[in-house]
Nucleic acid binder design. Structure first.
Lengths: 343, 343
DNA sequence: CTGAAAGCGCTTACAG
DNA sequence: CTGAAAGCGCTTACAG
């Protein structure tokens, strides 16, 4: 009564539920029940079916299943880019949470909708829900996502009064901690913010808080105290070089848009014979591995990247089972981690 | 004759091909042809159908489609981990190639099959093919992948006489270049290899070449010339510290398993008052961003990560359309990039 | 506890 | 060039 060595290889088409039913001497309905609602089936019958499944190495056709259930157990996640630790961490957090909940992740790493709009980067099908990260204004992309008509959670971008969930990082807390930390020991007039792209939501939130905190101390932020560029070491170097030429680098305390920018500034400072943190105090953003590798070690505002990914997946899964659920805005805190670069 | 504002929202179930057929006054077969083989349909008819599709905002049900075509246009990619630039780059390369070819990527970032085997991390369904990265011996995982019975391409791992495609990096070329480069200026007895985990396929390939090249110069590699640990800065620091204590760091030329290890060694060397490259010459592996950020800038062997990802996707897509295709082994070259750390 | 049968939304010979 | 109809492999009321 042993099964043929390779049941499946012998036939032309894959083993179907019908084959299993035949072998177990039951109807396909019963096989289906064994798979999905075993409590409805008599133990003895169930066991017979299970044996047939094992012997035939049956694996359900998920297309047929999805056609009935309208569920794929696949979630889409669309990121503007996949580079850098933040995205890796976010993806990892999302993936492990998805796995835990019985889902898989369909990843798009270039969801940018480059101008033309034609590139329909979200041409997902088969997904039960979509997590979309939007870091800069991009209405076209958001509209496209909404048109997909699946549960949607937007990351990093706040849309007031939206009909979908969102998960954002609360830049405010961490930024405030960082600025107040820098203010201890450096006068407000010598504190600077060196951010990423001006349109970037995070950059905007951070500079806003930076400005507020200084203002609360009675200091109006001057034009040259807040600069915008990109999230790169090069931009940090450029800023530091100019600042140094103007004779204003020494004595500054700088909050950087990310750790790479901080690294660029640190390199220039050190090359110029300035000591970090004695002459220049530095705080980065992201708490990346890079920051821990620098010497002096970089103080940095931690972003809960993995948590963002996991929260997005959770929100999506909740909504899949309860589409009436009220839209939720989740805000995850950031926090300052002080290391040597700003002591 | 304008379409209702929101055709889909009005009904309970989504728009189907039947709705489109009704509106355009044709059969569902014709609608299907317009979608998949427009050249079989009269232009006037096709246009009428297209209009109906647009008005109703029809989007095909991919489950039903897949049930017939047995194609999802989704490719699985399973990595042991998702951390680090190598994986990010690989994923990015794979994703953009997939997009170009009309596919999507289902990503699993923890394909490790931790001992128990139970964790069936490859529980992919719905995929047309699977790219699986295996960096250390893991027969259970490979077997599981084979049992999935979809086109398979294995990354980073060579399986002789296998029935599936594989894409590997040719460590040999780059390693050879690197060792010969170090040998110019440093005697063979003072050249070292500091690798990652001993079981790691890349580590093994590299130490093999390292040994061969030295042997070709008439030098037998001593036990303390090749060390194994992990791919981390900490391991690099540990190695360098011990080596320094033994008074043997100065004058060494070190080929490191990755850039992080190199960074750890560089930190210790500099802290010990040794100059890189004057007292210690360093070459890393991966040509990561980190390497370019270090000062002195790190020489490194470039790994074509994005190309590996893209090649994997290509192989899979080819095999999806031609399952009779003979298994191919693709080997992508590595190359040394000399910067300041080994001059 | 189990089965017969309808139905999910497509594609594709087969006829015309 | 187009349509009627079968069929892909499941799930799920509905009966019994």
């Amino acid at each position: 009564m042993a099964a043929p060595a390779s049941a499946e290889a012998a036939r032309s088409r894959p083993v179907s539920i019908e084959d299993v039913a035949g072998r177990a001497g039951v109807s396909t309905a019963t096989v289906s029940r064994v798979l999905n609602n075993p409590e409805l089936v008599a133990p003895a019958t169930a066991e017979r079916v299970q044996r047939a499944i094992a012997e035939l190495e049956y694996r359900p056709n998920l297309f047929a299943k999805g056609l009935m259930t309208r569920k794929s157990h696949v979630l889409g996640i669309a990121l503007p880019d996949i580079y850098g630790e933040f995205y890796s961490e976010l993806l990892r957090g999302a993936d492990s949470e998805a796995r835990r909940l019985g889902y898989h992740l369909l990843v798009s790493s270039e969801a940018r909708l480059n101008g033309k709009g034609a590139s329909s980067s979200l041409a997902f099908g088969l997904v039960d829900g979509l997590a979309l990260m939007i870091t800069e204004p991009n209405d076209a992309l958001l509209k496209e996502a909404i048109r997909l008509d699946v549960p949607l959670v937007v990351l990093d971008s706040e849309v007031k009064g939206a009909k979908f969930d969102s998960v954002v990082v609360d830049n405010d807390v961490g930024t405030r901690e960082a600025v107040e930390h820098l203010l201890q020991g450096t006068p407000a007039a010598r504190c600077c913010f060196v951010g990423g792209p001006k349109e970037n939501f995070d950059t905007q939130a951070r500079v806003r808080t930076f400005t507020q905190v200084l203002k609360a101390r009675g200091h109006d932020v001057k034009a040259d105290q807040a600069s915008f560029g990109e999230y790169s070491t090069e931009w940090g170097e450029k800023w530091a070089l100019e600042r140094h030429k103007a004779g204003k680098l020494k004595g500054s305390a700088v909050l950087c848009g990310n750790d790479e920018i901080a690294y660029g500034i640190m390199l220039v400072a050190q090359d110029s014979g300035l000591s970090v943190p004695k002459d220049v105090r530095l705080v980065g953003f992201d708490d990346s591995r890079l920051g821990r590798l620098m010497r002096p070690r970089l103080s940095s505002v931690r972003m809960p990247a993995a948590e963002v990914g996991a929260a997005a997946v959770q929100a999506l899964v909740m909504r899949v089972s309860d589409s009436a659920r009220a839209p939720r805005q989740l805000r995850l805190a950031t926090n300052l981690i002080v290391r040597e670069s700003s002591k």
